[in-house]
Amino acid sequence: MPDRAAIVTGASTGIGNALAEMLGSEGYALTVNSRRAEKLEPAVEALRAKGYEVEAVAGSVADEEVVKEVVARHRERFGRLDVLVNNAGVGAGQAIGELSTKMLDLQLGANFRHIPLFYRETLDLLEAAAAEHKNALVINTSSISGKRGEAWLSVYSATKHAVVGFTEAMNKELGERYIKSTALCPAFVDTPMTDFLAGQVSTDQMVQTSDIVALVRPLLNLSPGCTVPELIFEQTGFKIGQAM
Protein backbone atom coordinates (compact mmCIF):
# COMPACT_ATOMS: atom_id res chain seq x y z
CA MET A 1 0.00 0.00 0.00
CA PRO A 2 1.38 3.47 -0.87
CA ASP A 3 1.82 6.11 1.82
CA ARG A 4 -0.66 8.41 0.06
CA ALA A 5 -3.13 7.95 -2.80
CA ALA A 6 -5.52 10.13 -4.79
CA ILE A 7 -8.32 9.91 -7.34
CA VAL A 8 -8.54 12.63 -10.00
CA THR A 9 -11.41 12.83 -12.50
CA GLY A 10 -11.26 14.86 -15.69
CA ALA A 11 -7.52 14.25 -15.64
CA SER A 12 -6.62 14.07 -19.32
CA THR A 13 -6.09 17.83 -19.76
CA GLY A 14 -6.41 21.18 -18.03
CA ILE A 15 -6.97 21.57 -14.30
CA GLY A 16 -7.38 17.86 -13.64
CA ASN A 17 -4.16 16.94 -15.41
CA ALA A 18 -2.25 19.71 -13.62
CA LEU A 19 -3.53 18.55 -10.23
CA ALA A 20 -2.72 14.91 -11.03
CA GLU A 21 0.81 15.94 -11.96
CA MET A 22 1.16 17.92 -8.72
CA LEU A 23 -0.13 15.04 -6.61
CA GLY A 24 2.21 12.61 -8.33
CA SER A 25 5.15 14.92 -7.63
CA GLU A 26 4.11 14.94 -3.97
CA GLY A 27 4.34 11.15 -3.83
CA TYR A 28 0.68 10.22 -4.27
CA ALA A 29 -0.28 7.07 -6.14
CA LEU A 30 -2.95 8.03 -8.65
CA THR A 31 -6.15 6.73 -10.13
CA VAL A 32 -7.09 9.02 -13.01
CA ASN A 33 -10.25 9.20 -15.06
CA SER A 34 -11.44 10.95 -18.17
CA ARG A 35 -14.38 10.34 -20.47
CA ARG A 36 -12.42 9.51 -23.62
CA ALA A 37 -9.78 6.78 -23.55
CA GLU A 38 -7.90 8.24 -26.52
CA LYS A 39 -7.31 11.45 -24.56
CA LEU A 40 -6.62 9.75 -21.24
CA GLU A 41 -3.99 7.31 -22.51
CA PRO A 42 -1.30 9.87 -23.50
CA ALA A 43 -1.84 11.75 -20.24
CA VAL A 44 -1.33 8.52 -18.29
CA GLU A 45 1.78 7.69 -20.29
CA ALA A 46 3.23 11.11 -19.46
CA LEU A 47 2.52 10.64 -15.75
CA ARG A 48 4.05 7.17 -15.71
CA ALA A 49 7.11 8.45 -17.59
CA LYS A 50 7.79 10.66 -14.58
CA GLY A 51 7.78 7.61 -12.33
CA TYR A 52 4.30 8.05 -10.85
CA GLU A 53 2.20 5.00 -10.00
CA VAL A 54 -0.99 5.37 -12.03
CA GLU A 55 -4.22 3.43 -12.52
CA ALA A 56 -6.46 4.64 -15.35
CA VAL A 57 -10.21 4.25 -15.87
CA ALA A 58 -11.87 5.78 -18.92
CA GLY A 59 -15.57 6.59 -19.00
CA SER A 60 -18.08 9.30 -18.23
CA VAL A 61 -18.65 9.86 -14.52
CA ALA A 62 -22.18 10.90 -15.40
CA ASP A 63 -22.69 7.10 -15.45
CA GLU A 64 -22.95 5.76 -11.88
CA GLU A 65 -21.34 2.48 -12.92
CA VAL A 66 -18.23 4.35 -14.07
CA VAL A 67 -18.03 6.08 -10.68
CA LYS A 68 -18.21 2.70 -8.97
CA GLU A 69 -15.58 1.24 -11.30
CA VAL A 70 -13.15 4.10 -10.67
CA VAL A 71 -13.45 3.62 -6.92
CA ALA A 72 -13.32 -0.18 -7.10
CA ARG A 73 -10.17 -0.15 -9.22
CA HIS A 74 -8.55 2.39 -6.93
CA ARG A 75 -9.51 0.41 -3.84
CA GLU A 76 -8.18 -2.84 -5.28
CA ARG A 77 -4.84 -1.42 -6.39
CA PHE A 78 -4.02 1.14 -3.69
CA GLY A 79 -6.21 0.33 -0.69
CA ARG A 80 -6.36 3.88 0.63
CA LEU A 81 -7.55 7.36 -0.40
CA ASP A 82 -6.19 10.61 1.00
CA VAL A 83 -7.27 13.06 -1.70
CA LEU A 84 -10.30 12.96 -3.99
CA VAL A 85 -10.43 15.47 -6.85
CA ASN A 86 -13.90 15.77 -8.42
CA ASN A 87 -12.85 17.77 -11.46
CA ALA A 88 -14.77 16.23 -14.36
CA GLY A 89 -17.30 18.49 -16.03
CA VAL A 90 -18.55 20.02 -19.25
CA GLY A 91 -19.02 23.63 -20.21
CA ALA A 92 -21.98 24.37 -22.47
CA GLY A 93 -24.29 27.29 -23.01
CA GLN A 94 -27.71 27.78 -24.53
CA ALA A 95 -30.28 30.54 -24.34
CA ILE A 96 -33.12 29.41 -22.09
CA GLY A 97 -35.64 29.51 -24.93
CA GLU A 98 -33.47 27.08 -26.90
CA LEU A 99 -32.46 24.79 -24.02
CA SER A 100 -32.54 21.14 -24.96
CA THR A 101 -33.39 18.48 -22.40
CA LYS A 102 -30.34 16.52 -23.56
CA MET A 103 -28.05 19.44 -22.76
CA LEU A 104 -29.76 19.98 -19.40
CA ASP A 105 -29.35 16.34 -18.37
CA LEU A 106 -25.77 16.21 -19.65
CA GLN A 107 -24.66 19.09 -17.46
CA LEU A 108 -26.55 17.93 -14.38
CA GLY A 109 -24.82 14.55 -14.65
CA ALA A 110 -21.37 15.63 -15.75
CA ASN A 111 -21.04 18.69 -13.52
CA PHE A 112 -22.77 17.73 -10.30
CA ARG A 113 -24.42 14.32 -9.91
CA HIS A 114 -21.17 12.35 -9.81
CA ILE A 115 -19.78 14.39 -6.91
CA PRO A 116 -22.18 13.07 -4.23
CA LEU A 117 -21.73 9.59 -5.69
CA PHE A 118 -17.95 9.77 -5.30
CA TYR A 119 -18.31 10.91 -1.69
CA ARG A 120 -20.66 8.02 -1.00
CA GLU A 121 -18.46 5.40 -2.65
CA THR A 122 -15.20 6.61 -1.06
CA LEU A 123 -16.41 7.61 2.39
CA ASP A 124 -14.87 4.67 4.24
CA LEU A 125 -11.50 5.27 2.59
CA LEU A 126 -11.59 8.98 3.38
CA GLU A 127 -12.58 8.22 6.98
CA ALA A 128 -9.63 5.83 7.33
CA ALA A 129 -7.20 8.44 6.00
CA ALA A 130 -8.68 11.13 8.25
CA ALA A 131 -8.35 8.87 11.28
CA GLU A 132 -4.68 8.42 10.42
CA HIS A 133 -3.58 12.00 9.73
CA LYS A 134 -6.65 14.25 10.21
CA ASN A 135 -6.34 15.85 6.77
CA ALA A 136 -8.38 13.86 4.24
CA LEU A 137 -9.13 16.25 1.39
CA VAL A 138 -11.78 16.52 -1.32
CA ILE A 139 -11.37 19.09 -4.10
CA ASN A 140 -14.54 19.92 -6.04
CA THR A 141 -14.12 21.98 -9.19
CA SER A 142 -16.81 24.64 -9.44
CA SER A 143 -16.41 27.92 -11.33
CA ILE A 144 -16.69 31.65 -10.88
CA SER A 145 -20.10 30.96 -12.44
CA GLY A 146 -20.82 29.07 -9.24
CA LYS A 147 -20.58 32.38 -7.38
CA ARG A 148 -22.60 34.54 -9.79
CA GLY A 149 -25.09 33.44 -12.41
CA GLU A 150 -24.26 34.12 -16.04
CA ALA A 151 -26.61 34.65 -18.98
CA TRP A 152 -26.47 31.91 -21.63
CA LEU A 153 -24.60 29.73 -19.12
CA SER A 154 -27.64 29.40 -16.87
CA VAL A 155 -27.59 25.61 -16.43
CA TYR A 156 -23.80 25.52 -16.16
CA SER A 157 -23.99 28.27 -13.52
CA ALA A 158 -26.69 26.38 -11.63
CA THR A 159 -24.66 23.16 -11.54
CA LYS A 160 -21.59 25.04 -10.35
CA HIS A 161 -23.61 26.80 -7.64
CA ALA A 162 -24.70 23.30 -6.60
CA VAL A 163 -21.05 22.25 -6.29
CA VAL A 164 -20.32 25.18 -3.98
CA GLY A 165 -23.40 24.48 -1.85
CA PHE A 166 -22.68 20.77 -1.65
CA THR A 167 -19.08 21.45 -0.64
CA GLU A 168 -20.30 23.68 2.18
CA ALA A 169 -22.72 20.97 3.30
CA MET A 170 -19.98 18.31 3.28
CA ASN A 171 -17.77 20.44 5.52
CA LYS A 172 -20.63 20.70 8.00
CA GLU A 173 -21.39 16.97 7.77
CA LEU A 174 -17.90 15.50 7.60
CA GLY A 175 -15.65 18.18 9.06
CA GLU A 176 -15.74 16.76 12.57
CA ARG A 177 -14.27 13.58 11.07
CA TYR A 178 -11.41 15.62 9.54
CA ILE A 179 -12.65 15.13 5.98
CA LYS A 180 -12.16 18.58 4.49
CA SER A 181 -13.73 19.85 1.27
CA THR A 182 -12.65 22.76 -0.92
CA ALA A 183 -14.51 24.18 -3.92
CA LEU A 184 -12.38 25.69 -6.68
CA CYS A 185 -14.08 28.69 -8.30
CA PRO A 186 -11.94 29.90 -11.20
CA ALA A 187 -12.75 32.41 -13.90
CA PHE A 188 -11.61 31.52 -17.42
CA VAL A 189 -8.63 29.15 -17.21
CA ASP A 190 -6.21 28.70 -20.08
CA THR A 191 -7.20 25.12 -20.98
CA PRO A 192 -8.78 23.39 -23.98
CA MET A 193 -12.17 24.04 -22.37
CA THR A 194 -11.77 27.77 -23.14
CA ASP A 195 -10.66 27.34 -26.76
CA PHE A 196 -14.05 28.76 -27.79
CA LEU A 197 -12.81 32.16 -26.55
CA ALA A 198 -10.01 32.37 -29.12
CA GLY A 199 -10.00 35.88 -30.52
CA GLN A 200 -12.12 37.21 -27.65
CA VAL A 201 -9.86 36.75 -24.62
CA SER A 202 -6.10 36.35 -24.85
CA THR A 203 -4.54 33.55 -22.84
CA ASP A 204 -2.49 36.01 -20.80
CA GLN A 205 -5.77 37.43 -19.48
CA MET A 206 -6.78 34.01 -18.18
CA VAL A 207 -6.07 32.15 -14.96
CA GLN A 208 -3.35 29.53 -15.48
CA THR A 209 -3.44 25.93 -14.30
CA SER A 210 -0.21 26.76 -12.44
CA ASP A 211 -2.23 29.24 -10.37
CA ILE A 212 -4.66 26.49 -9.40
CA VAL A 213 -1.81 24.16 -8.44
CA ALA A 214 -0.04 26.88 -6.46
CA LEU A 215 -3.03 27.32 -4.12
CA VAL A 216 -4.16 23.70 -3.93
CA ARG A 217 -0.75 22.27 -3.01
CA PRO A 218 -0.70 23.86 0.49
CA LEU A 219 -4.06 22.24 1.29
CA LEU A 220 -2.27 18.89 1.44
CA ASN A 221 -0.45 19.93 4.61
CA LEU A 222 -2.93 22.01 6.59
CA SER A 223 -3.13 21.54 10.33
CA PRO A 224 -6.10 19.44 11.54
CA GLY A 225 -7.98 22.50 12.74
CA CYS A 226 -7.90 24.37 9.41
CA THR A 227 -10.28 23.98 6.46
CA VAL A 228 -10.36 26.14 3.34
CA PRO A 229 -13.95 25.88 2.06
CA GLU A 230 -13.38 27.57 -1.29
CA LEU A 231 -10.75 29.21 -3.46
CA ILE A 232 -11.83 31.95 -5.88
CA PHE A 233 -9.62 32.75 -8.87
CA GLU A 234 -10.58 36.04 -10.55
CA GLN A 235 -9.11 37.45 -13.72
CA THR A 236 -7.14 40.59 -13.05
CA GLY A 237 -9.04 43.68 -14.16
CA PHE A 238 -11.34 41.66 -16.41
CA LYS A 239 -15.09 41.07 -16.30
CA ILE A 240 -16.70 38.02 -17.86
CA GLY A 241 -19.30 40.16 -19.57
CA GLN A 242 -16.58 41.73 -21.71
CA ALA A 243 -16.09 38.42 -23.48
CA MET A 244 -19.64 37.26 -23.96
Rank of each mutant, 00 (worst) to 15 (best):
C226G: 03
A214C: 12
P224L: 09
G149Y: 08
T182N: 05
S142V: 08
F238T: 05
L30W: 11
S12P: 07
H114F: 15
N135Y: 00
L220R: 01
V201E: 11
V155G: 04
E176V: 09
L125D: 12
L23H: 07
A5M: 06
D124T: 06
P224H: 12
V90M: 04
Y28G: 01
E176A: 14
K50E: 15
L123R: 12
A110S: 15
L47C: 08
T141N: 14
E132N: 13
N17Y: 15
G16Q: 05
G27V: 11
D82I: 12
T203Q: 14
G149K: 10
I240R: 15
A243W: 12
T191C: 10
M193Y: 08
Q200V: 13
L23S: 06
G59L: 05
E69G: 02
T209H: 04
P192F: 10
H161W: 14
L231N: 03
V54R: 02
L117E: 05
H74P: 00
Y156K: 03
G24M: 11
Q242V: 06
E173A: 14
T101Q: 14
R148S: 11
A6S: 13
D124M: 05
E132Q: 14
A58F: 08
I96C: 09
V164K: 12
L174E: 07
T13W: 01
V213N: 11
G199N: 11
R73N: 04
A136V: 10
T227R: 09
A214T: 14
P42C: 01
A95N: 14
V8K: 01
A92I: 12
A29F: 13
A6K: 13
R35F: 01
E121S: 03
G91C: 05
D63E: 13
G51Y: 04
V163K: 00
F118M: 13
N33S: 08
E21I: 07
S12V: 03
F188K: 03
V163I: 13
V201A: 15
L108C: 14
A56C: 08
A243P: 08
S210L: 06
G109M: 09
D63T: 03
V138L: 05
V57H: 12
N111I: 00
I144A: 12
L117F: 13
V155N: 00
E45D: 14
L84I: 11
G225I: 03
A151Q: 06
W152I: 11
K39F: 09
Y28K: 09
I96K: 01
G51K: 04
E176C: 06
D190H: 10
